[in-house]
Design a protein around this nucleic acid. Structure first.
Lengths: 154, 154
DNA sequence: GGCGCATGGTTTTATGATGCAACCACACAA
DNA sequence: TTGTGTGGTTGCATCATAAAACCATGCGCC
């Protein structure tokens, strides 16, 4: 594209998220990182993506504060890529994507894995939107409000 | 790209979701659709995107069963694009993206809106992962299992 | 009943992001 | 010193994207 129309200045938080992780590979890299991968070669062979693209994506994720480079770990003089808190914070997004596929995919029989609670081995519950007081909310029960001018409470 | 490495056959449900809605504009179109937009021109002027791209994306979303075309509504001989159940099912994904931005964005003061419960006007709760029995789960509390061969229960 | 304008697209064209393969740098081993 | 594996970077071809021009239809209106 003539410049992939950056959403950087956009005031919508969804657009801002997409700016950081909305491209073709980022969420899959994060998925693997959540799964424990850390090394360039691990990502590359697991995802089967071109090394140059991986290189660019990793750098971009580091720039966005989603991954951080750690000096080593197993002695090899290379670096590892580990998730930051911000990176781990994407987990609900991945779960939402997964559950959407599980619920609506046209060929669910092609889905190989299910996400389960490690302790019981049972599927996790579907994510649900709730109000502050716990009421279950549908999209229609919500609306957008302008962000209140946040007086510095700190 | 030499063919944007389709994830179509991938067995990972996250990849499958991204195949449908993981490209640059789809989620924003869906966001606007959830907000009530229906007409080509509405999307185009609200999102400020090129009309050809919008055209391609709308067709793709229709092909994926996320939007459906409705014959008219206000008499004009054109069509409208309305969300299907599958389309409305993306709502948690959008909420997750929004909340991630709200929590981790480097410039939260640029975020213009907050999502609130329509009835009380209070922010919605953060999405949380829970086990079947209600226990709160962190990423580390979960794991993947192979999908059980689903014997046809229907 | 022809003219202009709005809506809803499609076509054309350039740019640049992506993918592949080859190449490079470094560490370690033999 | 040569060889091998890891971790990248550099060309280059190709395809998707974006911007703008173009087209088609409906409608007011004169």
């Amino acid at each position: 594209m003539v410049k992939r129309t950056s959403f950087e200045g956009d005031s919508c938080p969804i657009a801002r998220s997409l700016e950081a992780i909305g491209d073709w590979w980022s969420l899959l890299i994060i998925r693997e990182a959540l799964f424990g991968l850390r090394r360039f070669g691990e990502f590359q062979s697991k995802l089967g993506m071109a090394k140059n693209i991986l290189s660019v994506r990793l750098r971009s994720l580091v720039d966005h504060g989603i991954l951080a480079t750690a000096p080593a770990s197993d002695g090899s003089a290379y670096q590892e890529y580990v998730l930051t808190a911000k990176g781990r914070g994407t987990f609900p997004i991945l779960v939402a994507l997964r559950q959407w596929s599980e619920e609506f995919d046209d060929h669910p029989e092609e889905i190989a894995t299910i996400l389960v609670d490690r302790e019981k081995g049972r599927p996790v519950k579907k994510l649900e939107m709730r109000a502050e007081d716990g009421r279950l909310l549908s999209p229609a029960d919500t609306t957008l409000k302008p962000r209140p001018a946040r007086r510095r409470s700190a």
